[in-house]
Write a protein that binds this DNA or RNA. Structure first.
Lengths: 235, 235
DNA sequence: ACTCCCTTTCGACTATTGACGAACAACATG
DNA sequence: CATGTTGTTCGTCAATAGTCGAAAGGGAGT
């Protein structure tokens, strides 16, 4: 399976190139939803071995360890129906995203919604207590175009490998449409960032509270400055 | 530079996932056109260290070594004007290739043109003495569509990271047009494979001989069988 | 409060990596 | 034939990786 091989290379590359291989190893295990015990069984080692790696006890894991680790995660996914691999295949097959997607990144390792809030100079306006959660990447959208252009298939693709990401709506007018779209979608993002307005529609806030999605209002002036701030803080 | 980071991940991933990290490390050094001595200087180690890795003395290079290795190659490229990084950027930015490109792969490590010839059940018809050279990947084209559709920019992109690849022309009628196209292009492929005909135009053979490009006539029946044979022999 | 699951920490041990430097081989050039 | 460049092999040693297993912590469920 081609997507499987390409995903392997992507995962291994991210781990090796990461400023913190330990954190990136843990990120991928969490993306695949596998416990340390399950993974250890599949690799034929003790659970403490996995924990040692993810905690950074070994600073420079060997290539063979990384290769085995990646292969084991993908094997688990395949045994569960290839959900992650298929999701990645959709990302590959779709070619360039529409212009509605301004930017889209996966983090080498997750950062908290709180840190994301700091990066975008944001003000929490919904579910502030949930800002400790981990965010794995972001997708920035041009809201008017997104509403007009995104097909249901493309809407799935903006979630990349995991929905635990920041969905950033730029050029927002009153802040209701984004939440309506999220409300009717089966998949919910880990965090919503609104940009381009000062006051948010109360109904939008109610939807977010109900869906338990933290929402931030970014204070950075201009789309490009927002994207720049995010890119400069890539780990 | 974004393409730089993505290329880093790609290279590191290929090395780690490869069935032979040693050979893939050497492939990438050759793709970047850097000597072992130059690379050693840049890494602050002795040349024999590089040779030890490429010869397979160390079976499982550590992540840090791979990261440093990749970074050093890209630094060399940047100091020379970012030719490789820019080439990769063009690959990324172009989105999906036109339908003229049936398939396109880079090998984890190069194989000889002779091995490629065996894989496609080929008969050498030009420059047979050059079949010992290393081939780093392949691009399979639908010839009639390629002639009609490929812009000069897209023509460059079919070479991927290196031109030392097999350019495969399928649905060829008499075998002259492909060589005329190659003749006028500034970049020459490492190997040409013709498919879909029994006799090749003598002028085409003359052009290939003149350009010192080995040419093979594939004996596999059918485009799909040809691509399948190539994919099944990916290293 | 107890049990179970998941994860972390760390001492200890063996195997391998990372690296140097010497000796050598192959090829191109003058 | 001598010299320079590029690359290979290998003995050697210090440092680190790979791993086990014991002990322990935190959270959820009963």
């Amino acid at each position: 399976m081609d997507a499987r091989h390409i995903l392997s290379i992507r995962m291994a590359g991210e781990i090796v190139i990461s400023a913190s291989p330990a954190k990136t190893i843990k990120k991928w295990r969490n993306v695949f939803g596998v416990s340390q015990g399950d993974l250890a069984s599949r690799l034929g080692v003790s659970p403490s071995v996995i924990s040692d790696y993810e905690s950074g006890r070994r600073k420079s894991p060997g290539s063979e360890l990384v290769r085995k680790f990646v292969a084991a995660l993908i094997d688990v996914d395949v045994s569960r129906g290839s959900q992650i691999v298929r999701g990645y295949e959709r990302l590959l097959d779709g070619g360039a995203m529409t212009g509605a997607v301004i930017d889209m990144r996966e983090f080498a390792f997750p950062i908290s919604a709180e840190e994301v809030c700091n990066i975008v100079e944001g003000t929490p306006i919904a579910n502030e207590s949930l800002l400790k959660k981990d965010i794995y990447g972001y997708t920035a959208l041009d809201s008017p175009r997104a509403i007009l252009e995104l097909s249901s298939d493309e809407f799935l693709r903006i979630y990349g490998l995991t929905s635990e990401r920041a969905l950033i709506f730029t050029r927002v007018s009153c802040g209701r449409s984004p939440f309506v779209a999220i409300r009717v979608s089966p998949i919910k993002p880990g965090l919503v960032i609104l940009h381009g307005l000062k006051e948010v529609d109360p109904l939008g806030i109610m939807i977010a509270e109900k869906e338990k999605i933290p929402v931030i209002l970014s204070g950075i002036e201009g789309d490009e400055a927002l994207i720049k701030a995010l890119r400069n803080n890539m780990n």
